[in-house]
């Protein structure tokens, strides 16, 4: 106790020593970090002290990329998930959407439950995904004779409305964001190749699990729900991504993966997701009854 009481007295040197040590460490670190380490640029001349400090602080204007010639611009989609776009999507009016959706019935089925192998089921599809695909069709980013023509007749507002209506049909594709429980019990040693790809992916080929974006468990803006989708449709889309016939996925999200898949795997995945129509995953039990 006697020693403790002395700690604040002016004779006790240790507080000063401690402060001096801390200050010393700070000065040395700043000196090393700004003055020494940041000056050395591999493959480029060493920076002078002042530029090194500015660069370290992010104050330098002359660090822009070299102005080299760039290839012609080709954008995969006009949609960027800015707050403006998200506002447009969420402003969708279900009532007005239900009128527009009457045009979809011929191919996408009553209430968006497709019975054709050409057209995907849209009931319960994420509104953002429908909105994006409609925009891509409208501007030729995704090709389809029929859908391009139809999308051109829709305004941005109409797309948001019809997307909101179809997303509200909750009786088929599972809703994406709320079902965030990953399905457990599937690892990379899973023997069924489709289940392995869906729940564990294939790290050696750089394939992330399908479920990390398409659910359950994971979600990525613009990714459609797949459980209960038409098998032929899924398989054809995977093949189109792999062959570059479809290129409207932002930053090759699907193309990178589809190129690695074998035809058998595409088939198995499509069958798996279509099969989910009869036996829905336990996490969505009751969320979608069998088709009428």
């Amino acid at each position: 106790m006697a020693r403790d009481r002395n700690t604040v007295s002016p004779i006790n040197p240790w507080p000063k020593v401690a402060w001096a040590l801390v200050a010393g460490v700070a000065v040395i670190s700043i000196g090393l970090g700004f003055g020494v380490l940041s000056r050395y640029q591999q493959n480029d001349p060493t920076l002078d002290l002042w530029s090194a400090i500015c660069r370290g602080l992010g104050l330098n204007a002359d660090i822009a990329p070299a102005k080299e010639s760039e290839p012609a611009l080709r954008t995969p989609s006009r949609i960027a998930w800015t707050t403006h776009t998200l506002d447009q999507v969420s402003a969708g009016d279900v009532r007005h959407g239900s009128f527009i959706a009457m045009n979809c019935v011929a191919c996408h089925g009553q209430n968006g439950l497709s019975k054709s192998t050409v057209a995907p089921t849209l009931a319960g599809m994420d509104a953002a995904a429908i909105f994006k695909q409609l925009d891509d069709f409208r501007f030729g980013k995704r090709t389809s004779g029929v859908m391009e023509a139809i999308a051109k007749t829709l305004s941005v507002r109409d797309s948001a409305d019809v997307a909101a209506y179809l997303a509200a049909q909750k009786d088929r594709l599972p809703p994406l964001p709320p079902a965030r429980i990953p399905e457990s019990g599937h690892g990379p040693r899973e023997s069924d190749p489709a289940k392995r790809l869906v729940y564990a992916g294939d790290p050696r080929r750089g394939i992330a699990p399908c479920s990390s974006c398409h659910g359950p468990g994971g979600y990525k803006l613009g990714a459609p729900a797949l459980h209960g989708q038409q098998a032929a449709y899924i398989e054809r889309q995977l093949a189109s991504f792999a062959q570059g016939l479809r290129q409207n996925d932002i930053f090759e999200q699907m193309r990178v993966i589809a190129r690695q898949l074998t035809t058998d795997e595409m088939q198995a995945l499509a069958a798996f997701y279509a099969g989910a129509l009869q036996s829905p995953p336990t996490t969505h039990a009751g969320a979608h009854e069998d088709a009428p």
Partner: peptide, 16 residues
């Protein structure tokens, strides 16, 4: 060494 490059870019509209 820690990359000292500080350049900012809008991450949402990169693909445009």
């Amino acid at each position: 060494h820690p990359p000292s490059n500080v350049e900012t870019i809008d991450p949402v509209t990169l693909h445009l």
